[in-house]
Design a protein around this nucleic acid. Structure first.
Lengths: 350, 350
DNA sequence: TAGGGGCTGGACAACGTTGTCAACAAAGGG
DNA sequence: CCCTTTGTTGACAACGTTGTCCAGCCCCTA
């Protein structure tokens, strides 16, 4: 029941392919542009009667506010970017979900992208996100030098690194205590009687890989155990490499009796390889994975908490966006040893 | 070696907190606004000498083009949106990675969001993405009525549904042949001698769940087998429910000798439950999962191809954006039965 | 009934970019 | 030597929204 003659002004036709704007809505409702804006944004100062007329026009035209224009005007985009190694990696996908959850709670949308462990791609992605003027960035770095982010950070893009630290810039960082977890893993094997323990890790230069091998060496050293040079292998986590390295370690001149695997992909391959062997070999893996408890024996792991990692990082980010100005923080979350059987296999001689 | 006196005009200071614009760059380089735009976009018609002066200014100021403004001007955002049930679900994360990969190949960024199976949240997310003026949407629907998308689609937002069809609108869709896969699964169990086969599926109303239970009934019917009313259970995939339903089916008055589980979460719980039983129970699951081959017995599954699902959907979307105008297409990808042992266990009596 | 105060509504500029168009200089042809 | 052509450059409007500010209007009071 419109209280004005419905046909007193021509209603513009719904144009396909080009969207109606506030101007169109205003024309159709017979009000000013700003009044439409007020209705759309729930601002006060519009009579109920005017508001309902505007709402009817919005409905009729299928109007939806253009947030690009809004962003341009307001400065804030209410979106954050996430750059990680691989969206599909079972370790990172709960992390991204946690980031998304926090973003949602703060009214933000999430841009997500995978670097595929290629430094140039990380940079390309991060800068593309900055060009979109994301309010903040959560980054699992693949590169070693992040000075390229300095202008962005100076311009106010809140930035938090997760899982691995940033290179050559000082920013908020959320990490797991990788070296500590590795020490625990190796100490666990030593406690079960092992002396010859192999380590198969990810490519050298990746922070987590380096920290874990460091923890391995520390644990061996503090137990007074020598490390044979063939016991440590760093490289790509491809099944082929892991398989051949494992075979080498288990059958070389100084064979290992236990294996510490440096991440979940390595662990999975290791489980496969070890299952083919006649004698059981002790195994502890870094990173938990689904069904680890269902295997026989269950796989003992150092479990990180990817959800907490992501949540902590995102919360830190939004605290920055709320204007908290503290020096960059470095949060380190503990790993947790979950004993399931594979790590408690004694050495053959014992 | 600038060929103009470096101090002939005052260089504006780098303002922190607010970013330099093309205007700033132009002022610093002593050129017009449009010339900066040309350099930034690699348009022809700029002398090498002018270009280098502009580049120097860009470098010095840390300028990065504001893509929000660009989007506003150009209309296309070079970004697409992905709405799915759960970013962290091991089934959907390879799908999202595949979508991301195709987006990247087409020069687009990806907005990702989880609906958590809540219809309102799906709609809220999809419309928020439309307000950001994404060029297209890939949606794994959680709701039953998608007419709310009609104005968006009319306005040119390319839209593709994956894994589940859209409700009450006619759009491009990419699905797995769920009923067919379910028929294969049940037929496989029947071929191994089973007559009493239970089905535990996801909540009724979810398309894939309904299709799979339909396939189950079809396979039983076409083998001339009756279905006891206690053999079919639909509901949430929580471990508690799955456990109690399984226990009920296996020990009731008409106990089943084999189980067909309706998705990977159900399957995982089923494996756990069945591992606790003294006698082996045959099991086939819908959806493959990592390590299914490592369990003893290996778990027989109907494998979908989430990567292909995602890739196909995204490619369809970009084909639409390239202006292909065909009626909406419905692509159905086959499932593949992977026999690993658990499905080949004979019934106890045999 | 005139004047003042509180609401409501609209005109206008600005956000940073790109498309259009015209100005200008240098080069070439008659 | 002038006119045309080619190539380089910049002024200006427009994209759709929001913030500022001012003009009416209504109601109340004196």
């Amino acid at each position: 029941m419109p209280d004005f003659p419905a046909d007193s002004r021509p209603t513009p036709p719904v144009r396909y392919g080009s969207r109606p704007t506030m101007k169109d809505v205003a024309a159709r409702a017979g009000v000013g542009l700003k009044t439409v804006s007020r209705v759309v944004n729930g601002e006060p100062g519009v009579t109920l009667e005017t508001e309902s007329r505007v709402r009817a026009a919005i409905e009729a035209l299928g109007f939806r506010r253009n947030d690009s224009a809004r962003v341009l005007r307001k400065g804030r985009t209410a979106s954050i970017g996430l750059v990680l190694e691989d969206l599909a990696d079972p370790f990172y996908s709960p992390l991204s979900r946690a980031v998304e959850e926090v973003a949602r709670a703060n009214g933000s949308l999430l841009f997500a992208g995978s670097s595929a462990e290629v430094p140039e791609r990380e940079q390309e992605l991060a800068l593309a996100l900055c060009a979109r003027r994301v309010d903040g960035l959560v980054i699992v770095p693949a590169s070693e030098d992040h000075r390229y982010l300095e202008p962005e950070i100076a311009a106010g893009v809140a930035t938090v690194f997760v899982d691995r630290p940033a290179g050559r810039i000082d920013v908020d960082t959320v990490l797991t205590d990788n070296a500590g977890g590795a020490r625990d893993a190796v100490a666990h094997l030593i406690a079960h009687g092992h002396r010859a323990i192999g380590f198969i890790g990810d490519t050298e230069g990746i922070y987590t890989a380096d920290e874990r091998v460091r923890g391995y060496h520390e644990a061996m050293a503090s137990a007074g155990l020598p490390v044979d040079e063939g016991w440590v292998s760093m490289g790509p986590t491809s099944p082929e490499r892991v398989r051949s390295e494992l075979d080498r370690m288990l059958s070389g001149p100084a064979p290992v009796t236990a294996v510490f695997s440096g991440n979940n992909r390595v662990t999975v391959t290791a489980v496969r390889v070890l299952a083919d062997r006649p004698d059981p070999v002790a195994l502890v893996g870094f990173d938990d994975f689904e069904l680890a408890d269902l295997l026989r024996p269950g796989v003992t792991v150092i479990a990180q908490d990817p959800v907490r990692l992501g949540r902590t990082a995102a919360e830190l980010l939004f605290r920055r966006l709320d204007g908290i100005a503290e020096p960059p923080r470095r949060v380190e979350l503990p790993g947790r040893l979950v004993a399931r059987g594979s790590g408690e296999i004694p050495p053959p001689s014992a």
